[in-house]
Design a protein around this nucleic acid. Structure first.
Length: 878
DNA sequence: GAAATCACG
DNA sequence: ACGTACGTGATTTCG
């Protein structure tokens, strides 16, 4: 007989996670009585998943009992920092209990004990009987229970995935045996359960000590063998804390539970009761899944042919578009495994897992002769490049088209996009799984999915083309976004070299500064605390040091820069905190973060997301190369971005004031256009106008600063409150500023009103190149949402048209580089700036060429201005 | 997962 | 009376 299986679920931890997994959309999920159901729903689907996956004969869901536990009796502050659970959560707990009962699953809680202890006790009993146990929890502390017979499954990324902690897995990841997790927690403490551990000992130090000594007990027995150090002192001083924390972290495996293994048999659900509960809670998805509800018939498997090197001749010659994709398992196509490809014609889909077939001559020739329809051109171009091949004839991209039709539909999952256009296609997540469980399915499943995708691509193409035409976006698609995908692919493939030693050296300096500041701050504050925790920092500043509270956040005191700037004079510690924040950011994001992103070729290959933003801008991820520090000491980071070859340099050109120039053009404002036509300093010009001055000499730096902020505010869709806050004036003054501004630039005012009006009438606004953004909230009864939509209506045509312009410039620039046979390459785009590398002797050519291409990308009623620089590093190209 | 913070245009 | 600048991504803490 097969081994008996027991499933123990940490109900408290999972319910909490289930609640927060859909926290933002919580209010979308309520029943007709206003009871929230997000936690119940998520908990329920989680339950379905684990029951299906583990198929246990015995199940128990353990909960914490409210009120204290034996641990609180030992240590008052245990879990003391926790805020009370929100009422939207508490109201769902009774339903979760009912849900379990109706599922035929036992649940249990015990006075003075936590769910952990119930689970630990039962797991031990099950082991004695020779059963296998799986424990489902969101809490890593439970991994201490892992044995050969007990696997601890910890939820990841909310609740969607499980990570299986076996003793071997724990050994692999931490180098510890499960029981040593207890010593680990003893040494490092636990912030969320609010027990201390040893001062200054975090996970790293604790692991080192445990690898050396094995346990806390043995560590203290052999403390003499440690060299004198601050850490040793801390260990001596905090011995009590360590031992107490160890006790607190220990799960009681002999809790006096009144329930036994024999009570846990899973008998299956009571479908009628479940149906009643789902109905009461208005859980339609769950209702649909109940047996006996209407089911959708499984679709017939599609036909496909598996390609081999021997049957490539089967590919038919056709003038019709064909579907193509190189499939990869992960988002990051620079490094993801390539798991197969497909070629679909209207009559047949050809599939294979062996992507090296693509390098064979007959297939290359075939691909070069047929127009391809893909989902995500850039992704396929990079994948192809990894196989040393080009895809010269990509004619249609379903992802790009879908994004242009509505940039809110920016999912990267073909299944999702298909659904948006009323086509049936399984989500990639359903075929491949998510996160740790993501894997290549068996060939039949994979190939069938390929066939579905191929046929879906071919089916969607004519509809999307028609829709693009109807929205006047055909050119935007075929002359801008699709060609741009090719250009971006080349930039991403080129990558930029990171000078790692240089960056490491900077990082070491910043780390040293960080440590000095840390100690100084602890001295000034009179205590040690976690500087990276806004919560703890807030307590120190506003409770211990009694500094005035300037601003609050949802959860407590705000400690952001603008607040700290105002508190600088109140205490010397504030400046140190600001300095600490600066270097900590540089170290973690720009030194450690960038070093992590370097691929084996020594380069950083970012990915531009071409179908993400609502305005038409690009974004950049893994890593983000569009927010590398440009000011103050952080800009040194740019010294680490260097050319890929000796004798080469970095070249950069950027548009000057492109958004205000776009505004001057589309608003038709004569005064603003005049300023640009005469190449005046636009901010000084604005200052002269709103402060009613006669000559530029009368503009003080402060006036210019305020005028500049007002110009920005206008672009963002101004409000008096926002402007007042930004430049530190009263709301009245801001109001007067804005009135003055509109008096001086009257057509700008007209433009703002016109855009809001357009949005109301059409439901969307457009850029110069017909990029569209829908603004459903423009008619909202909710004041905030409506105001936001109005500001968006004013801003999107400006930001989006500027994005259009640089996209045109990039496409033309790539053509020019080829036409002029330059070795120089385009590497990066940062919204209004293009960065290249090339041989030093090509720099003068770039200096002539790039600005010319950029400023002639479009013809506006005002000139576009471009500034260029070059040097040995990105830093020097400024 | 959410929130807070801070980097860029 | 409402509560606000537009568009992004990465890191850290916390429940």
């Amino acid at each position: 007989m097969a081994q008996e299986k027991l499933l123990l679920i940490d109900g408290s931890s999972l319910a909490f996670r289930a609640f927060y997994a859909m926290y933002t959309q919580m209010d979308r999920f309520t029943n007709k009585d206003g009871v929230h159901t997000n936690a119940v729903m998520t908990f329920n689907s989680m339950l379905d998943n684990v029951m299906a996956e583990f198929k246990p004969q015995h199940v128990l869901v353990a909960f914490d009992k409210s009120g204290g536990t034996f641990r609180t009796k030992m240590f008052d502050a245990y879990k003391g920092q926790r805020e009370k659970a929100p009422s939207e959560f508490l109201e769902q707990l009774p339903y979760i209990n009912r849900l379990l009962e109706d599922h035929g699953i036992k649940h249990y809680a015990l006075q003075d004990y936590e769910a952990d202890d119930i689970i630990g006790t039962l797991a031990k009993q099950a082991e004695a009987r020779g059963w296998h146990t799986d424990i489902i929890t969101g809490d890593r502390d439970l991994t201490q229970l892992a044995t050969d017979q007990v696997t601890v499954q910890v939820t990841r990324k909310g609740v969607g995935e499980l990570e299986a902690f076996t003793p071997a897995h724990i050994q692999e990841t931490l180098g510890l045996a499960p029981k040593q997790i207890i010593d680990l927690k003893g040494l490092m403490g636990d912030a969320s359960d609010n027990y201390p551990g040893v001062t200054k000992v975090g996970e790293k130090t604790a692991l080192k000590l445990l690898h050396q000594f094995g346990s806390i007990a043995n560590l203290y027995q052999n403390l003499d063998t440690l060299k004198a150090s601050k850490m040793k002192e801390n260990l001596i001083n905090d011995r009590d804390k360590a031992e107490m924390s160890r006790t607190l972290a220990t799960i009681d495996q002999a809790a006096p539970i009144e329930i036994g293994l024999d009570d846990l048999a899973y008998t299956g659900p009571d479908l009628e009761k479940l149906r009643a509960l789902y109905t009461e809670l208005d859980m339609r998805q769950a209702l649909k899944k109940l047996p006996g509800s209407e089911t959708t018939a499984p679709k017939a498997a599609l036909h496909y042919v598996v390609l081999t090197d021997a049957n490539l001749a089967l590919l038919p010659q056709t003038n019709l578009p064909v579907a193509f994709e190189i499939e990869m398992l992960d988002d990051n196509y620079h490094v993801s495994p390539e798991i197969g490809f497909f070629i679909g014609t209207k009559d047949e889909t050809f599939v294979a897992t062996d992507v090296t077939l693509l390098t064979l001559k007959p297939l290359q020739t075939w691909l070069a002769a047929h127009e391809l329809t893909v989902f995500d051109a850039k992704r396929n171009l990079v994948a192809a490049n990894r196989l040393n091949l080009t895809l010269p004839k990509i004619g249609f991209d379903v992802l790009l088209a879908s994004y242009l039709l509505n940039p809110d539909q920016n999912s990267n999952d073909f299944g999702q996009i298909a659904e948006d256009h009323d086509y049936q296609l399984p989500l990639d997540a359903d075929v491949y799984g998510k996160g740790a469980k993501r894997q290549v399915p068996d060939d039949e499943t994979l190939f069938n999915h390929f066939a579905e995708k191929a046929q879906c691509l071919l089916a969607l193409r004519p509809h999307l083309l028609k829709d693009l035409e109807a929205q006047d976006q055909t050119k935007l698609f075929s002359e801008m976004e699709l060609p741009l995908a090719m250009v971006l692919a080349r930039m991403e493939i080129a990558g930029i070299v990171l000078d790692q030693p240089t960056l490491k050296a900077m990082g070491d300096q910043w780390t040293a500064t960080m440590h000095v500041l840390e100690e100084k701050i602890y001295g000034e504050a009179g205590l040690k605390f976690n500087l990276n925790s806004p919560k703890q920092l807030g307590e120190v500043l506003f409770e211990k040091l009694n500094l005035p509270v300037i601003k609050k956040t949802k959860t407590g005191y705000s400690t952001s820069v603008d607040v700290l700037e105002q508190l600088k004079s109140a205490s010397p510690v504030v400046q140190d905190i600001l300095d600490y924040r600066t270097v900590a950011k540089l170290q973690s994001t720009y030194v450690a973060g960038l070093l992590k992103a370097v691929l084996p070729d020594g380069k950083i290959h970012t990915r531009y997301l071409q179908t993400l933003t609502a305005t038409g801008r690009l974004s950049s991820v893994d890593p983000n190369m569009q927010n590398i520090p440009a000011r103050d000491e952080g800009k040194q980071v740019r010294q680490a971005f260097v050319p890929s070859q000796p004798g080469w340099q970095i070249f950069s050109s950027d548009y000057s004031q492109i958004e205000l120039r776009v505004l001057a053009h589309i608003s038709g404002d004569k005064n603003m256009q005049e300023a640009f036509k005469e190449d005046r300093d636009i901010h000084a010009n604005t200052a002269m106008r709103i402060f009613d001055l006669d000559s530029p000499d009368q503009v003080t730096p402060d006036m210019r600063r305020q005028a500049k902020a007002t110009n920005f505010g206008i672009v963002y869709g101004i409000s008096d409150f926002g402007l007042a806050k930004n430049i530190g004036i009263t709301r009245q003054q801001a109001k007067a500023f804005i009135a003055g501004y509109f008096a001086q630039y009257p057509q700008v005012h007209d433009y703002m009103e016109k855009m809001v009006q357009t949005a109301r009438e059409n439901g969307y606004v457009e850029t110069l190149f017909h990029r569209r953004r829908y603004l459903n909230d423009i008619h909202s009864r909710n004041f905030n949402l409506r105001q936001f939509a109005e500001r968006t209506a004013m801003n999107t045509p400006i930001q989006g048209s500027a994005a259009d312009i640089i996209k045109v410039a990039m496409i033309r620039m790539q053509q020019m580089l080829e036409r002029e046979h330059l070795q120089s390459r385009m590497l990066l785009q940062v919204h209004d700036e293009l960065i290249f590398e090339g041989p030093a002797d090509e720099m003068p050519k770039l200096a002539a060429l790039v600005p010319k291409v950029m400023d002639s990308a479009v013809s506006l009623d005002v000139p576009l201005k471009v500034e260029s620089h070059f040097g040995n590093t990105w830093f020097d190209a400024k």
